[in-house]
Nucleic acid binder design. Sequence first.
DNA 1: TATTGTTATACTCTATAACTATA
DNA 2: TATAGTTATAGAGTATAACAATA
Lengths: 154, 154
Amino acid sequence: MNEKSKKSSETSIDYSLLPELLGYQLRLTQLAVFKDFSESVDDAQITPSLFAVLVVINANKDLKQTELAKAVRLDRSSVVSVIDKLEKRNLVIRKRVEGDRRTNALELTKQGRALLSQLTRRVKVHEQRLTENLTEREQATLIKLLGKILPDAR
Amino acid sequence: MNEKSKKSSETSIDYSLLPELLGYQLRLTQLAVFKDFSESVDDAQITPSLFAVLVVINANKDLKQTELAKAVRLDRSSVVSVIDKLEKRNLVIRKRVEGDRRTNALELTKQGRALLSQLTRRVKVHEQRLTENLTEREQATLIKLLGKILPDAR
DNA sequence: TATTGTTATACTCTATAACTATA
DNA sequence: TATAGTTATAGAGTATAACAATA
């Protein structure tokens, strides 16, 4: 039927069409990257997603929760629990906003900024590990090509 | 401090260093791909992960659960619930194995094979959508470059 | 009326640890 | 003793719907 399929045995598995699928390769890569990220920041108990939250809060003065939700593609209610968690860890505070008592202004605490700074250094090392088999040019190509996949869905 | 940062305003968010990170671009791409996959197979209630399970069972006669677990990177106990679910939907059966009564041989049912065949067609359309902005050559380059990221973690 | 944040709730996915039946 | 599958359980992450306060 399919000349690319290999016969299965006790030791080797036939993945059939999966290896040809971009979606599958993307998922495998992601899994490996996620694992390496976690190991890179291990004791900090931070996921890529939480790292992004810290970066975005840090870069946007008095960010509102709804803005954060949009930026990191979470529901407003999910942001509540994310911020609850970070606030309990003394990394983020919700500040009162003058002029609109419905909204909170998010801000990193001193501890949050210190952690972010440490994480940023570790993430850069992690990124170097990701790209150690790629030339500068290949890295640029890769980012460019990724950006061409479903550009309207971002 | 950082000349790449843009001032935030009501309408635009500063993502700071995130866009330069390969891990971040990979995650964004993945999110978009996952969403498009789900829409492509919508009524079938199948995730990329379940699709991979069906493909691997189909391609490997009398696959054992532990082998499947290894192939799709799940714990044995997670495979139990995955197969429970697929068995309830009459897509997969656990067959008795002569000579070793501890193990099950997994097999797609007729319904499972029919669904897989339909899914495979839809996934190919989905893949075409993913790559519609890429030349053949770019597709090959992309898969090649993805394979160079943390090759030892696979 | 519309928006922001919140709560209560539930669902999916996955893992760990302990168990059973077989080998 | 070791292995395959199972069960009970728990945790992370996320969403939906309804609600209160405020605009």
